[in-house]
């Protein structure tokens, strides 16, 4: 039937969209790791890859939004799904901005902060990854949403702690003498932790949307 064919096509697009978000999170993580390993060329490759993923996610989101409205699908939860898509797309945008800023500014991270930055990257990546899992669960089995959301909250909290730790080290440690470099460390720590905040924003929307989805 035509209705079911079109629905399957839309489901496929949503799946591809979240594959893109998931891949973008992974590209962001590996890009930052290359940067911390002082491999700027490989970071640039990741930036390029991230640009492509961001464009792909944008066009997929627009196509899904158009179809949802033009075919009057899921009228009761359409607003929730659209806001989830937009919030998920924001995560990619922020990840792209972070990688681009790293590629342009190439800040020098002192050895004392490398470990903390790696841990912060891991926490933010885990938050994004759990966010994608939670969103996929929303479409298939709402009772699993909370399990993943709780993990997002956990990693976001971890990321906040690591962000604080980096800031304290940057401003109180002996690694830097110039204020500008301390501020630059703070800026990147905030940007990196912001990825988990964006994942948390999606999780917050999901928590409400999942309650509304119960029949």
């Amino acid at each position: 039937m035509k209705l079911f064919d079109k629905t399957r096509q839309l489901i496929e697009e949503i799946e591809v969209f979240y594959d893109t978000v998931s891949e973008a999170a992974l590209v962001c993580k590996t890009g930052i790791e290359y940067f911390l390993d002082r491999e700027p060329l490989r970071l640039s490759e990741r930036v390029q890859q991230m640009n492509d993923l961001e464009n792909q996610a944008d066009s997929l989101r627009r196509s899904i939004e158009h179809k949802l409205y033009s075919r009057m699908l899921i009228p009761d939860v359409r607003g929730d799904v659209l806001s989830l898509l937009e919030a998920s797309d924001n995560v990619i945008d922020w990840a792209k901005k972070l990688l681009t800023a790293l590629d342009i500014e190439q800040p020098q991270i002192p050895d004392a902060l490398i470990k903390s930055f790696r841990e912060l990257t891991g926490a933010s990546y885990n938050a994004m990854d759990e966010m994608v899992r939670a969103t996929r669960s929303y479409f298939y089995e709402t009772e699993m949403v909370n399990d993943h959301i709780n993990k997002v909250y956990f990693y976001e909290h971890e990321a906040d702690k690591l962000e604080d730790q980096i800031k304290r080290k940057a401003f109180r440690g002996e690694e830097f003498t110039e204020l500008s470099r301390r501020v630059q460390m703070r800026y990147f720590a905030e940007r990196l932790a912001n990825l988990s905040d964006q994942a948390e924003a999606v999780a917050n929307r999901l928590a409400i949307a999942a309650i509304k989805r119960s029949i």
């Binding site: 399957r8 699908l73 479409f139 298939y140």
Partner: peptide, 18 residues
């Protein structure tokens, strides 16, 4: 049935319309 079948939100919508 909805819980156990793990049917996608959009597919559930299509079946409900029908």
């Amino acid at each position: 049935l909805v819980r156990k079948s793990r049917v996608h939100l959009f597919m559930l919508d299509a079946w409900t319309r029908l």
